[in-house]
């Protein structure tokens, strides 16, 4: 590492306050998921978190040892934080249909952006959980030959999900490639 590069990196670090740090894609027209999904997500976490928190209190309930109360409290705080952040987390989910590929993003703390060429599609799955069905939402999964692709778009109104599925199948057909 030469002095010059060190100096350059030092200035870079200095200027780092104005440069973006997160992985944002400017100029991408993100489609957001339905705000109703916030409710679905919260209810899901309430049920799951409630069970986990209740389980966390079992050691205290059995032993009566005061410090073991911390486990349950910690779980309760954790899940409450997760629930409090749900609206932001849901707003962070987005997808964009570009000319030849599907862009999908999610996460605020752990950001992830995926690009999948349409031609790589193996199948499209639409699933509906009981809570999502109550508010008329569905979940769309785009499956490729790679298990790690992980494109799962939640919180789509059923009609939209079905339209999106048909669209994806149609464009995948015209761009079909080998494996």
């Amino acid at each position: 590492m030469t002095k010059q590069t060190e100096a350059r990196e030092a200035t870079e670090a200095h200027e780092a306050h104005d440069v973006p740090r997160s992985i944002e894609f400017d100029g991408t027209d993100w489609q957001r998921v339905s705000p109703k999904y916030i409710t679905v997500d919260i209810v899901g976490y309430l049920v799951f978190g409630g069970i986990m928190t209740a389980a966390g209190f079992i050691p205290y309930w059995v032993s009566g040892w005061q410090p073991s109360l911390l486990l349950g409290i910690a779980l309760a705080v954790l899940f409450l934080t997760v629930i409090a952040l749900t609206p932001r987390r849901v707003r962070a989910i987005g997808y964009a249909l570009r000319d030849d590929d599907l862009l999908f993003r999610r996460g605020i703390l752990f950001q992830r952006v995926v690009a999948v060429p349409y031609g790589r599609m193996q199948l499209v799955d639409i699933t509906r959980g009981p809570i999502a069905r109550a508010v008329g939402l569905a979940e769309l999964k785009f499956v490729t030959a790679a298990a790690s692709t992980g494109v799962l778009i939640p919180g789509l109104p059923l009609a939209d999900a079905e339209r999106l599925r048909d669209h994806l199948v149609a464009v995948a057909e015209t761009r079909r490639a080998g494996l």
């Binding site: 740090r21 997160s22 992985i23 703390l109 752990f110 992830r112 952006v113 995926v114 790679a146 692709t149």
Partner: peptide, 22 residues
């Protein structure tokens, strides 16, 4: 098959990211 870029709370302050080719 696809490509993803990720950034977690450790990488973000350092202006780093990781790339995963699936």
């Amino acid at each position: 098959q696809s490509v993803s870029v990720r950034q977690g709370p450790v990488l973000r302050p350092l202006r780093l990211a990781s790339v995963h080719v699936h």
